[in-house]
């Protein structure tokens, strides 16, 4: 069977991207990013187990501009994946499948993820920064 010539689904090139579609692929992208972020969490724990110098250098990295960009990105990715994951769990038990409902819950997820990210970084700033 000449499988290579058959069209692929979904036809990403011909759809006008609705919100749900963008959020779906973002769920994957943030999931992949968070898997990498988990490795950093383990690295932090290892540095804490290893000794004061390792922990200090791990903290210095986190407080660097590169570290801060990563942390900020990961914090939003976490809250987005968390909120959208809850949205998926509701779908899995059969709620919220209507087109209008799914669109509305998508907007809620985006707003909630931004608010939670803002709250966490407000806490960090109120404590005087990362390092």
């Amino acid at each position: 069977m000449p499988q290579n010539t058959r069209p692929l689904s979904p036809h990403l090139q011909v759809y006008r991207w609705p919100l749900s579609m963008a959020l779906s692929i973002l769920h994957r992208a943030t999931g992949i990013a968070l898997a990498v972020g988990l490795l950093l969490v383990v690295w932090l724990l290892l540095s804490l187990a290893h000794g004061p110098e390792s922990y200090a250098s791990a903290r210095t990295f986190c407080a660097s501009w590169f570290g801060l960009i990563l942390l900020f990105g990961w914090s939003w990715a976490l809250f987005f994946h968390l909120c959208n994951g809850v949205r998926h769990l509701f779908w899995d038990v059969g709620y919220g499948f209507g087109l209008a409902q799914a669109h509305r819950s998508g907007i809620v997820v985006v707003v909630a993820s931004l608010v939670l990210t803002g709250l966490v970084w407000a806490c960090v700033l109120a404590q005087g920064g990362v390092a």
Binding site: L38, L39, V41, V42, L45, L46, L48, A49
Partner: peptide
């Protein structure tokens, strides 16, 4: 591997 390393780090501390 990373999960085991993380668990060992927490246990050590």
């Amino acid at each position: 591997g990373a999960a085991l390393a993380g668990v060992v780090a927490v246990v050590r501390i």
